[in-house]
Amino acid sequence: MPVPYIRHAIHDDEEALSRLDRVTWSPLHAVTPRPQPPYDPFFNERFGPRDHLVAELDGTLVGYVRLGYPTSLACNSHVRQIQGLAVAETARGAGVARALLRAVQDEARQQGARRITLRVLGHNTPARGLYESEGFVVEGILPEEFLLDGRYVDDVLMGRGL
């Protein structure tokens, strides 16, 4: 099986990233409604290409992770937060998500971060298992934070030191 190639996103990736975001949408991880045309741009004022690492397999973009700040407060600037992770269905099981998680932690360290955090829905067992296997621990739970498809779902806060 080929090893995922991880790199920073570039503007030319926008269409592929937008398409990937739409086809990987799932109530397992999304708190927003399924995207409908006309689609919003993938890159925006808040998150541009440099805030994304992408994964390629055999030259095809198959995943991304978005890294940002959890708040705009200066006293919180030592923390980075994973604010999006997606892997194409065809690339699942190839180590893409794990490679992206490891690369984004390296990126956060290079930016001077001391901690990295993320939020995951309580019912997303596969993602929680992956994060735990990469050293993330549950640091808080917001019980029944979201009402999704008629069910109340916990918002789980996870993090780790760098």
Rank of each mutant, 00 (worst) to 15 (best):
P38M: 09
A30I: 05
A88L: 13
G150H: 11
S133V: 08
W25M: 06
T24W: 13
G84F: 07
L85S: 03
F43S: 03
R80P: 00
A30C: 15
L20A: 03
A9V: 04
F136I: 08
Y69S: 12
R109G: 04
E15D: 14
N76T: 10
H52E: 06
G93H: 06
A103C: 02
V156G: 10
E56G: 09
A91N: 05
G112C: 03
P37S: 08
L20M: 05
R34C: 12
L17W: 11
R151N: 13
E15M: 07
L73I: 12
S77D: 12
F136R: 01
V79T: 14
P126K: 05
R160V: 09
E56T: 14
V3I: 13
R66Q: 15
T24R: 12
V153A: 15
E144P: 02
F47T: 03
L148H: 11
T90C: 07
A16H: 00
D106N: 07
T125M: 09
L147Y: 14
Q36C: 12
M158Q: 10
I6W: 07
R46E: 14
A99V: 09
L101H: 08
A94D: 04
L67D: 10
E107M: 05
H11F: 04
F136G: 06
R92H: 08
E89L: 08
L17N: 06
V96K: 09
G84A: 05
R102A: 05
Q81W: 00
H52M: 13
L162E: 12
Y64S: 11
P49E: 06
R128T: 03
D51Y: 00
F136K: 00
Y69C: 10
Q36K: 15
P143L: 02
I141M: 08
R160A: 10
V138Y: 02
R98C: 03
L100V: 12
R114K: 05
L73D: 13
S26Y: 00
P35M: 06
L28E: 15
I141Y: 07
L100Y: 10
D21T: 10
G93E: 11
V65R: 08
V138A: 12
Y5W: 05
L57T: 07
P35L: 05
G135W: 04
A16K: 11
Q110E: 14
Y64T: 02
N44D: 15
V153R: 15
E14L: 02
A94S: 15
L17H: 13
Q111M: 14
R114A: 01
D58T: 08
F146N: 04
L100R: 04
Y152D: 08
G129P: 02
H78A: 10
A103Y: 04
W25G: 00
P143A: 09
D21I: 01
G93M: 03
F47C: 01
L73G: 02
D149W: 00
D21K: 08
